[in-house]
Every structure is written in structure tokens, then in C-alpha cells.
């Protein structure tokens, strides 16, 4: 029954108490129960209330996704679990830092493409750049693959942060 249903990707936003071990609880739940983590982002979002937001991109059949949300929700320090993929339109963004080492025409082309992708140069040497690019994951992927031919050295990505559209709080 369940294995005939198709797996799909979901972006889940989890509001948690910012306390030691909370990330280990969430990650341990995923590894212990055999769920996937495609992307994970976590940082404190409300210092006064001591809250952090964890944004997880995971994939599974509808039954597995329902189970993941229920399992997250029953962790004691978890306040809210929202499946952004199910709850109407939302926006996703990712930031990447990309180091490229090249000279001559390749260096010029890298800078030109960076301009097309609205990537910023945040560090420069005579033979290298570090670009900062933000956007959805497709855009970041595309930019990185273009840089591969132009002297790509290192990539650092934040993973996805996401939010619903419109004025309502989660």
C-alpha cells in the first residue's frame, strides 16, 4: 500500500527550545527511524524566548511524511511543526559561498557569469574570487556547475531556509 505511493520532497519548519542537545534529538530521530535529510538549517531566531528554527527538507511517501511530522511533534522541546510544502505557497532560499581560482579569460568569464546570477564578490585576489550567491537551490546548483569549468575550488552552502508567503505567522 504505502510503497506504491510516490515519495516526494517536503520542507518542514520546526520551532524548538534552543537548548543543548536539541539538534541531536532531531537528527537522531531521522537517523534512528531511517528517514532522509536532504537539507538542514538551524539557528536561534528568538533570543528573548530562547527559540530556534530548524528547517528540514526531507523526502518520503505521504504516510512517511505524516509520521515524520508526528514524531517531531512529540519531542518534548518542540513547539511547532509546519509542513510548508502542504500549507500553501512558500519561498525557499539558500546561500552559497563559491571559491574560484583562475586567470585570464576564465577569470573574466567567471566574473561575467557572477553578474548574471547577481552573485557578489566578497573576496578577491589577483588569481581568485569568492562569490556569494543566494536564490533557490536550482539557481545555486546551476551557478556552481558553471563555475566547475572556470576553476571551482570550494563550495559552502547553508541549506534551505523557508517561509510562507503573505503576512501570517506560522
Amino acid at each position: 500500500m504505502s510503497n506504491r505511493e510516490l515519495a516526494s520532497s517536503h520542507t518542514i519548519s520546526v520551532l524548538v527550545d534552543n537548548e543543548p542537545g536539541i539538534l541531536a534529538r532531531v537528527v537522531g530521530l531521522f537517523s534512528g527511524r531511517g528517514y532522509n535529510i536532504e537539507s538542514l538549517t538551524v539557528a536561534e531566531t528568538d533570543a528573548a524566548e530562547n527559540l530556534s528554527r530548524i528547517t528540514i527538507v526531507t523526502a518520503g511517501t505521504p504516510m512517511v511524511i505524516e509520521q515524520i511530522k508526528a514524531q517531531l511533534d512529540r519531542l518534548v522541546p518542540v513547539h511547532k511543526v509546519h509542513d510548508l510544502t502542504m500549507e500553501g505557497p512558500h519561498i525557499e532560499r539558500e546561500l552559497a559561498l563559491i571559491k574560484v581560482k583562475s586567470t585570464g579569460e576564465k577569470r573574466v568569464e567567471a566574473l561575467r557569469l557572477a553578474d548574471v546570477f547577481r552573485a557578489k564578490v566578497i573576496d578577491a585576489k589577483t588569481d581568485s574570487f569568492v562569490f556569494e550567491v543566494t536564490g533557490n537551490s536550482d539557481k545555486v546548483d546551476t551557478f556552481i556547475s558553471l563555475m566547475a569549468a572556470l576553476g571551482l575550488v570550494d563550495v559552502g552552502r547553508t541549506g534551505i531556509v523557508a517561509m510562507t508567503r503573505g503576512g501570517e505567522a506560522l
Partner: peptide, 9 residues
């Protein structure tokens, strides 16, 4: 709630 729809719909 996590016991519901875990193994059987």
C-alpha cells in the same frame, strides 16, 4: 498521534 497511520492506514 505518531501511533496513528504508522503501520496501518
Amino acid at each position: 498521534p505518531s501511533s496513528i497511520n504508522k503501520n496501518v492506514r
